[in-house]
Nucleic acid binder design. Structure first.
Length: 883
RNA sequence: GGGCGCUUAGCUCAGUUGGUAGAGCACCGCCCUUACAAGGCGGUGGCCGCAGGUUCGAGUCCUGCAGCGCCCACCA
């Protein structure tokens, strides 16, 4: 922004000032929490993944948080918005692996240490991009407190938590089936598997009886290769068809071994043939069946889902990829006449949410958190209202998951992440779990110990984030002042992944809730309602939008669309129209500056004119509405209220009305208007600041000088208010609108000044007459004459109002036929209103049981519309006699 | 199978305790009125998904149905 000698540019150009203001904020450390406030407020920014750059969803979520943060800071509180980034285990490792792949390399070529170095390099790059984006968005994060989920403070919190849980027996190591991603070669949690309908096949295979190979049972499977690991065929115990078979042996085709027929309730006799092959090592249900019946668990895969060389597996299939093996086995079954039939079959297939590889249930050793003991207090915290979901219905989703929660598999076979702080001993079975780096086995004292190769699920460290960033496990001043945080702002897609885990970990380790409110916002979609994704090519990059329309326009749009509980379809047109709003603000302010004279805003101003008293009253009302909206997380209402006030009231009416005294009146009136228009501007700039920080800061500096900073909202809402001024101005606006309406419908040029006559009683006339200059200016009148109540005017267009009748003589304006048509249109409209109102009043029950105020309202509406109707009828008669 | 959400103007969506339906965009008119054409003024446009119920009164509360979407669990 320029010094005061230069006027602001005629057109809003955010690029000319947003970056400079952003620099001012960052360089002056403007967003460090103040030290001298009694009240504290804090939000932990959900740390973005260092997988690239921020997308529109981040911009949305971050804008909402910034609005809250700036608003609270302007209330004079000590505010911390904690900044950080997430290492995002799998996701980030994949990004770097893909980069290596493009160079024809693999992480194994580099080795673990070199690979992790590469990821750190990438982290620096991606993190830099992300922080740059945040600054362009105008986020008021405390830049001095940047954290990372793998920095030292986070790591020590992670080790502390792991060790404590282990010592309490809540972390354990177990061999069981996990969801295995054969491409990434790691276990993933249940949540990281996404199921989708896919086209597949249903292979019906004959399993011959061992004692009579001419007979057989038919089993159906979608994964025929798993029969290599079959341990049994199961039937329902009550299924008469197979009762005799239970306990007998079947020949497992292709495998040259026999398996028993077992009976288990798990089998649905209605489905398929009622015979199910049981493969304990490769199906979660089968695993349970196998356990009940003591079946052998035969693992048939390698880590990459190739067939392994277990002794029971026929040699010809060993080493084959799972799908190659499937093909070969189906062909072999067919050749042996054991393939009964093949059906097309649509079924759900689980794929890794990152790799999209088909997930295999796979038997491995993993680390688990015994979750129930952590879940119970976390459920209770929400039940008791110590944590509140906004919108509230999300608590149902939360409860549903939490009440059916499974132990959490926390180990991942990755290289990027927190190494599990457990060491295995070469000389004994003891596992040493330690906060530091132990040198010998805690069991036998042997120095032959080796750390677990695996890393922790990325959500393990994110789960500690609200307190690990504040110095926990030390008891720091930050913990004291800013924990519990006030609100978590996030999307519903990570309620289980992250929100639930933070609550569990927070309750467990701090004994307090990590946040009091959880504001769940919607997902951002494109204009067609599609989820934005790189593969679809429909992502809207926030930076491109900011470059084109400015950060404020984007932020205002996002705030305006932040309706709780519905997905946001982001249409660039919407951003464009809000850019136009910014332009409106820019130019209205420019007008104010051009006409300010020597005046300064004065929050104690006590203006005498109705126009000035009215605008300050309206500003006050707006301030209360904005405050209520923000308090209730109704961002769309806050934005809408400001839009309506700034554009619809301040610009459309106040500035136009103010021109009368700025241009024509005496010096005293002019000076008062200058002060009030500046004061009101100052007020709504502050109100708008949390949503649109750049333009408001720029204009604030124009208003108060280049060193001024918009930091408080303290004085807003202190004006006493003047209901009389408001009602007078409403009357004026009603008259002006009526005249404009006639002019508009009659296509009278705005340049043409017209004569108006108004009939009204003395009281109404006095009110309107006090604003005569304003009225004439806004309605573009050449002259205004006052008529006695009940007077008629021949040959005039008529607009009957609540307490007055406006006549616009037609001579030279329009023809009689046109006005007649307009009158008749209005007659129909008003006639309908009258009929409806009469109907309501003639209903005894309504009159008896509705509140007094409502009935009175209807009565006065009816009265008003009746007289309006009379006037229109009279006007119709007069016009017809003319024509 | 269980749960949740949505259905309002041509399009995208507001509508906080029930009290005669709103915005933006689009469209149609008149305007370069000395802040703004990224603008001003006026206007057209809606059985608020369907069917019941509660109520003097329902877009708003209750029940059922339909369509769309999401989440969870899953029959091999």
């Amino acid at each position: 922004m320029s010094n005061q000698a230069n006027e602001p540019a005629k057109t809003y150009d955010p690029q000319s000032f947003e970056p400079a203001i952003s620099d001012q904020w960052v360089n002056s450390d403007a967003f460090r929490p103040g030290l001298d406030a009694d009240e504290h407020y804090s939000i932990t920014l959900p740390p973005p993944n260092v997988t690239g750059s921020l997308h529109m969803g981040h911009a949305f979520s971050d804008t909402i948080q910034d609005i809250l943060i700036r608003w609270q800071r302007m209330q004079g509180k000590s505010v911390l918005w904690q900044l950080g980034l997430d290492h995002a285990g799998i996701a980030t490792q994949m990004v770097v692996e893909r980069q290596l792949d493009a160079q024809g390399a693999h992480r194994r070529d580099l080795g673990r240490e070199k690979f992790v170095e590469k990821v750190w390099e990438w982290k620096a790059e991606s993190g830099g991009v992300i922080l740059g984006q945040m600054k362009r968005l105008g986020l008021s994060l405390d830049w001095s407190r940047e954290r990372f989920t793998m920095d030292e403070s986070s790591s020590s919190a992670v080790r502390e938590v792991f060790v404590r849980l282990y010592e309490e027996g809540l972390i354990y190591r177990g061999k069981r089936l996990v969801n295995w991603d054969p491409v990434l070669e790691t276990a993933v949690s249940d949540l990281e598997v996404v199921y989708d309908e896919e086209q597949g096949h249903f292979w019906h295979i004959q399993y011959p009886h061992a004692d009579d190979p001419s007979r057989h049972v038919i089993v159906a499977t979608t994964r025929p290769e798993t029969m290599l690991g079959d341990g049994a065929v199961a039937v329902h115990p009550d299924d008469a068809r197979y009762r005799d078979l239970i306990g007998k042996e079947l020949i497992l085709p292709l495998c040259n071994r026999t398996i028993p027929v077992i009976a288990d309730d798990y089998v649905d006799p209605e489905f398929g043939t009622g015979c199910v092959k049981i493969t304990p090592a490769h199906d979660f249900n089968d695993y349970e069946v196998g356990r009940r019946h003591g079946l052998a668990v035969i693992n048939i895969f390698t880590d990459r889902a190739h067939i392994n060389d277990d002794a029971v597996i026929p040699e010809q299939y060993r080493g084959l990829d799972r799908y190659e093996a499937r093909e070969r086995m189906v062909a072999d079954l067919e050749a042996e006449g054991l393939l009964y039939k093949v059906e097309d079959h649509t079924h759900k297939v689980g794929r890794g949410d990152r790799s999209h590889a088909v997930i295999e249930p796979y038997l491995t050793d993993q680390w688990y958190v015994a979750i129930q003991e952590l879940a119970d207090p976390a459920i209770k915290a929400v039940e008791d209202g110590n944590i509140r979901f906004v919108p509230q219905h999300w608590e149902k989703t939360y409860f549903e998951w939490m009440r059916n929660i499974q132990d959490w598999c926390i180990s991942r076979q990755l290289w990027w992440g927190h190494r599990i702080p457990a060491w295995y001993c070469a000389d004994c079975e003891h596992i040493t779990v330690d906060r530091g780096t132990p040198e010998y086995c805690g069991g036998c004292g042997s120095r032959q110990i080796r750390q677990d190769e695996d890393v922790l699920d990325t959500w393990f460290s994110s789960g500690l984030w609200p307190f690990s960033t504040l110095g926990w496990p030390e008891s720091t001043r930050e913990m004291e002042n800013f924990y519990s945080t006030n609100v978590l702002v996030t999307g519903f897609d990570i309620i289980f992944f992250w929100v639930a885990r933070m609550i569990m970990m927070g309750m467990k380790f701090t004994g307090r809730v990590p946040f009091k409110d959880i504001y769940i916002h919607a997902l951002i979609r494109d204009a067609q309602g599609q989820k934005m994704s790189k593969s679809k090519g429909n992502v809207i990059d926030p930076l491109e939008i900011i470059d084109a329309y400015g950060a404020d326009a984007l932020r205002f749009t996002l705030a305006h669309m932040a309706t709780p509980g519905r997905d946001v379809k982001l249409d660039v047109k919407r951003i464009e129209s809000n850019r136009n709003f910014m332009n409106k603000i820019w130019n209205a302010s420019r007008f104010v500056f051009m006409n300010r004279g020597d005046a300064q805003p004065d929050v104690n101003v006590k203006p005498s004119s109705d126009v000035n008293r009215w605008i300050l009253t309206e500003l006050d009302r707006t301030a209360r509405e904005v405050e209520q909206a923000l308090t209730g997380y109704r961002f769309n209402e806050a934005a809408g209220t400001l839009y309506n006030f700034i554009w619809g009231i301040y610009c459309d009416w106040y500035v136009e009305a103010a021109k009368v005294s700025l241009y024509k009146d005496d010096a005293a009136a002019r000076a008062e208007t200058q002060i009030v228009m500046l004061t009101a501007l100052d007020g709504w700039l502050r109100l708008l600041h949390p949503i649109c920080p750049f333009i408001t800061e720029a204009l604030f500096q124009e208003l108060h000088g280049p060193d001024a900073r918009l930091v408080t909202a303290d004085w807003i809402g202190t004006y006493a208010g003047d209901a009389k001024a408001v009602s007078r101005m409403n009357r004026v606006m009603e008259v002006v609108t009526a005249i404009r309406s006639i002019r508009g419908e009659m296509n009278v040029s705005p340049a043409k000044k017209v004569v108006a006559r108004i009939s009204a009683n003395d009281a109404v006339r006095a009110e309107l007459e006090s604003q005569q200059k304003v009225l004439m200016s806004l309605a573009r009148l050449e002259s205004l004459e006052w008529l006695a109540e009940g007077a008629d005017v021949e040959g005039a267009a008529v607009a009957p109002l609540a307490d007055a009748i406006v006549f616009l003589p037609l001579a030279g304006l329009v023809d009689v036929a046109e006005e007649l048509a307009r009158i008749e249109k209005n007659l129909v409209k008003v006639g309908k209103d009258v009929a409806v109102l009469e109907g309501r009043l003639s209903n005894r029950k309504f009159v008896d049981s509705a509140p007094e105020a409502v009935v009175a309202g209807v009565r006065s509406d009816l009265e008003e519309n009746r007289s309006r109707l009379e006037e229109l009828k009279a006007a119709e008669v007069r016009l017809k006699s003319l024509g």
